[in-house]
Structures are given as C-alpha cells and as structure tokens.
Amino acid sequence: MDEGEIRWTASTKYKAEYQHANRAWSYSGAKIKIAPDSATTVNDLNYEDFSDARNAAAGVWSRHPGIAATDLIRFNKARMDTFDAATRRMVAAHELGHALGLCHKSGSGKNAVKSVMWPEAARYPDVPTDVDKANYRRLWG
C-alpha cells in the first residue's frame, strides 16, 4: 500500500470473489482506495492461485516489504473449489482484510466477536462488520 491506496492485479480464476472483497472493503468512509493497477501506478497487490491439497488454508496473504514490493493474496484451488460461492467470498474478504493490516479476531459463546477476520471461513461474514470497521479506523483514521 502506498499513498493511501492499494493498486491490484489479478491472475486468478476467482474473479467474482476478489471483486466482492474489493467492494466490501471500499465501503462508505473507508480511507484506503482499492483500485486496479494501471500503467502509471505501482502494483501493491496481486491475486493469484495455487493448489495444495495438503494445505488446510483456502487463502493466504503474504506481505512483501520494500520499495515497489507486491503483496500476494493466493487462493488454494484445492480448498476454494470445495466451497460454495458465499464461503469463497468470505475467504477473499478475509485475506484482503489482512492486506489492509487487520489481524484475526476470535471469541467463543455469547462473547464471540462477529468479524470478517475470523480465522475459520465458515464462521465469519463476507463483509466487514462494525468491529472490523472500528479496527480499520484505528489503523487508518
């Protein structure tokens, strides 16, 4: 991320999912602009796929520090292809939350925190909740 924006590219079969995530985190009041990369901008993030049946993760975000470094959100086809569309959207929104600087949220029972940042795909919503937005504001104003 640079200059208050994330510029992205994509080489993934999960277009509907990453488009959903980009829209979900571009809610009214969001400070970080999420837009496609262009010939005149620096690419900050790439969406791509991999396939590893031994890896339990459906999605993985990895940060690559340094000038002009591109972070990755990688979707594990071996997991994503077993999920319904709603769960795939949840995974994409969750991983983009990491790219925005948010960490996992958890809880149990009546004190559980409802958050797109739950670490388990089946347990969180597919859009940022009030908790997510509050944590986002703490990071980005």
Rank of each mutant, 00 (worst) to 15 (best):
E5R: 15
I6A: 13
I6T: 04
I6W: 09
I6K: 10
S11A: 14
S11F: 07
S11R: 12
Y14W: 15
Y14P: 02
K15R: 14
Y18G: 04
Y18T: 07
Q19V: 08
H20S: 12
H20W: 14
A21G: 08
A21W: 07
A24D: 03
W25Q: 10
S26W: 08
Y27G: 02
S28T: 14
G29V: 14
G29A: 11
G29F: 11
A30I: 12
A30H: 12
K31L: 00
K31T: 13
K31I: 07
I32Q: 07
I34N: 09
A35K: 12
S38Y: 06
T40G: 05
T41L: 00
T41G: 03
T41K: 06
V42C: 06
V42E: 13
L45Q: 03
N46K: 08
E48Y: 05
D49F: 02
F50E: 06
D52N: 15
A53E: 12
A53P: 12
R54T: 07
R54V: 01
A56H: 09
A57N: 09
V60F: 01
V60W: 02
V60R: 05
W61E: 07
S62Y: 00
S62R: 13
R63Y: 15
R63H: 14
P65G: 04
G66Q: 10
I67G: 02
I67H: 10
A68Q: 15
A69M: 09
T70L: 02
T70R: 05
D71I: 02
I73W: 03
R74Y: 00
N76Y: 02
N76K: 00
K77V: 11
K77S: 14
A78N: 07
D81P: 01
T82V: 01
T82H: 01
D84E: 11
A85F: 06
A85I: 09
A86Q: 11
A86L: 11
T87W: 08
R88K: 14
R88M: 04
R88N: 10
M90E: 07
V91M: 08
A93R: 08
E95W: 03
L96Q: 07
G97F: 04
G97I: 10
H98Y: 03
H98W: 03
G101T: 10
C103V: 05
K105Q: 15
K105D: 15
G107M: 11
G107C: 04
S108D: 10
G109T: 14
N111R: 12
K114D: 14
K114A: 12
S115C: 09
M117F: 04
W118L: 04
P119A: 12
E120D: 09
E120W: 13
E120K: 15
